[in-house]
Design a protein around this nucleic acid. Sequence first.
RNA 1: GGGUGCUUAGCUCAGUGGUAGAGCGCUUCGUUUACACCGAAGAUGUCGGGGGUUCGAAACCCUCAGCGCCCACCA
Length: 861
Amino acid sequence: MSQPNRELASTFTPAEIEAPLYEKWIAAGYFTPDANSNKEPFTIVIPPPNVTGSLHIGHALEHTLQDALIRMKRMKGFETLWLPGMDHAGIATQNVVEKQLTAQGFSRHDLGREEFVKKVWEWKGESGGAILEQMRRLGDSVDWSRERFTMDAGLSTAVLTIFKKLYDAGFIYRAERIINWCPCCLTALSDIEVEHSDDEGEFVSVRYGDGDMSITVATTRPETMLGDGAVAVHPDDPRYKEMIGKTVLLPLVNRMIPIIADELVDPDFGTGAVKVTAAHDPNDFEMAIRHNVPFIVIMNEYGVMAGTGTEFDGMDRFDARIAVVAKLKEMGRIVAQKRPYIHAVGHCSRCDTTIEPRLSKQWFVKVAPLAKAAGDAVRAGRVKIEPEFLAPRYFEWVDNMHDWCISRQLWWGHRIPVWYGPDDEVLVLGPNEKAPDGYSQDPDVLDTWFSSALWPFSTLGWPDESADLKKFYPTSVLVTGYDILFFWVARMMLFGLFAMDGVPPFRVIALHGLVRDKFGKKMSKSRSNTIDPLEFMDRYGADALRFSLARGANPGTDQTLAEEWVGASRNFATKLWNATRFAMMNGATVEGPLPAIESLNAIDQWILSRLSQTIAQADSLLESYEFARACDLIYHFAWDDLCDWYLELSKESFAKSDAVATKRVLGYVLDQLLRLMHPIMPFITETLWTSLTGGESLVIASWPVAQKTHLNKPAASLVAQLQSVITEVRRFRSDQGIKTSAKIPGRFIAPDQLAPYLGAMAFLLKLESGDFTPSAQLEIGAVKVEFDLVGTIDVVAERARLQKDLVAAEKDLATAKVKLSNESFMAKAPEKVLIEIKERLATTTADIERITVQLAALPSP
RNA sequence: GGGUGCUUAGCUCAGUGGUAGAGCGCUUCGUUUACACCGAAGAUGUCGGGGGUUCGAAACCCUCAGCGCCCACCA
């Protein structure tokens, strides 16, 4: 603390302080973690930012909360580390780059795989750099020099290692399966990449066979009948019992197909008879396996009919649907048509194309055993989900997870490390292994979540036993939105537990909600209600945005955000700026020891007491991820207690005496408060704090500590008394239409203990002492205030006011009396409540008496 | 269909058993040398409906009604 009390600009301009500060922090190396330090580690994983090249409001929220925790922990003496990354393999990235290519007039197929991947890298360099800049503006304290891309050597090694490990343990297998296929993206999609919506369709009932040997099936996808291998009914369905095991004619293709019995069929749905298209429907696939029904593929990868040997070959699947129905109609085989028929249809979450179930050879992860471990880790309390009410969602998913299809027919991503020999040998390669001549690698790449799941340890150097890994794994807390619980969080759990010998990747999963617009609507581009965090930072400053986001962040709950909110936060920052400037102008200092508590006046004692309460509560709230409540608490302490009361009550001291003790106390309170706020509003607090204290940086300052010895009830109740007198007198002045600035003669008649503070009150209330004959008076508790109002007072206003108070007091009295005369209450209510009610009875009785006297004393109208 | 959450002041939300809270907005007054991005004073609620438990319910239980999110193979 060398050069305190440097000057502050008279106006607060966020833009002027924010940019230079970030440079300062980076240059000083505050954010660089040291794996060899003996401090306790605190580690946070950063989810990969989105791929569009600009900071999304959701990431701004996430980053603010994470950074607040990191900054707090650093101040508490932890060795802190983010695990940053720009990973996003997969289709989203590929799509963005492809779009650019299309705009330039060529496709990725012209380029070839290698050139295309190069293009993606170029693009990621640019967009990644842009995002990085934007995050820095937000004030995050990430050491981005540690950032690693999924595709770089370190992570490739991790991917190869885990794949082989899983394969050798029997957790990865290849199988023919019905998968979700997007005929537009030409790729397989995992279950979670498919979005279901209720769409309009047609429910057609078609008669198969003729005469006695006919059966009517109902379907929403008539075109798939070309690939039917059977008709299924429920084994106990009396309508069809006789027909089971016989065959019927499949129209259009004129093939005889068997009628089979399977429990899966719901006899009450449709006609109770289902066509079985083994290669194009997941349910049918399962039945087909049980009953040996052939898999007949009738569509190619583009969703075009192919290989049926009918006139429909070459038609798009939707055209074929219409054509098939038309033809069947012609043949008189349509028994019923229900239209529109609303039913759930799967769509590609990227391009919205209707999903086509498709028979395909894919790689899978057998998740059941892994997911069991992931669920157990939470059940056993080794990993905590905050807030707890979101845990059922996690279990719901982890306990019912389907096997995970991990192969993707993309070019951008980790190539599946499987090689096929000339005679269909299958070889899985680990790091530094080479396939023999004549082997070729699987063309598919891995699902993006496969590599993302490795984040908590691959970024630390795994599979090497690095110093980082030893020190910083498992990570302390994962802060992320609940929407990504299934995509990312659960998968990190799966792989973390597996790869790290049962040690889960994080100790706590702290979930926040989504950011919505001010009407509570989910933000989306089509609604054009998206909020651009950059614009808000331009207009109001990064601190204001951070404070707004943190203040709205109740655990696991969505928050709304609107420009007014951010504006209000900026106002708060300005308030803080001005308060600190005022304090410094009046000589607030951090030099020398804090005076002994007993030597301080009650006002100083009170603010120290409130400060310690605030620190204790805010600290524990931040430690439990209750950002909103912590912010609220700090906000009210700073604005209400410090600015509105303490500074106002201290003005008289500053004006009339040298107020040495108060200057020191004020310096102390601001110093501590700025430390407390630094995690949420790093820029302004840094500027104010360095000016006030001359310290090097809040980033490396210590965290404020609540002082138990500062807690002071008598001082608190004395100040509460002062506050109620001041408020009452102000109210009286206001009701009487006396200007705030007007000085009026007035004096207090008060108990001795208030004597030292009457001057401060008079100063605040603009009361002038002197000889006068009182023309009006107020009684507030034990304090009497006499005024000389030149001219008459507004009796009507005052009477109305007193009447109102009287009514309220009488009501309170009645409530208290009812309770006290209730025998059950007296018998069963706890002592504490009893005393409280009795006190209330006493005070309201006194109030009524006092008000009645005052009313009587008023001149009659 | 399964899971889960929400319903409190005009708006957005806190509040988990003891006299209903905050921010913004609103009304009135005010440029008193920190701050008009401000200050002072003020108004505003059958706490979604209905039952129950309790001396006492916004809070706990049941039920109904709306809204939302996630998951899901209904042909």
